[in-house]
């Protein structure tokens, strides 16, 4: 059961990496990267149950937070071209 889930996750992972490599626009790559972060969380959970040690499930929460911050940083860079700007201001040009 968990083995089947792990296999499905691996197939999805391969497809995501293909999209990240081919992706015509930056946003394709960005969404692929974000989804790979989610995949890592799911893989952590499934591998935990697969090896009979689901104690590490909590670490998935940390991963989710990191994933969010990484994506926000990239999007902010894309919007403002600079990370030091605070979010409320509009770009100058």
């Amino acid at each position: 059961m968990f083995a089947a889930a792990a296999l499905a996750l691996l197939v999805a992972l391969i497809l995501l990496v293909v999209r990240a490599l081919k992706g015509p626009t930056v946003f394709d790559r960005l969404v692929a990267a974000n989804s790979i972060g989610t995949e890592a969380i799911l893989l952590l959970a499934v591998v935990g149950f697969l090896t009979g040690r689901p104690e590490f499930l909590d670490i998935g929460i940390t991963y989710a937070l990191l994933n969010l911050i990484g994506t926000l940083a990239v999007l902010k860079y894309f919007r403002f071209g600079d990370l030091s700007q605070s979010g409320g201001e509009e770009p100058e040009n």
Partner: peptide, 14 residues
């Protein structure tokens, strides 16, 4: 390349 770098790290973490 930066985005691919972050993907690399997630794969390595896995």
């Amino acid at each position: 390349v930066v985005i691919l770098g972050s993907i690399y790290s997630f794969l390595m973490a896995s």
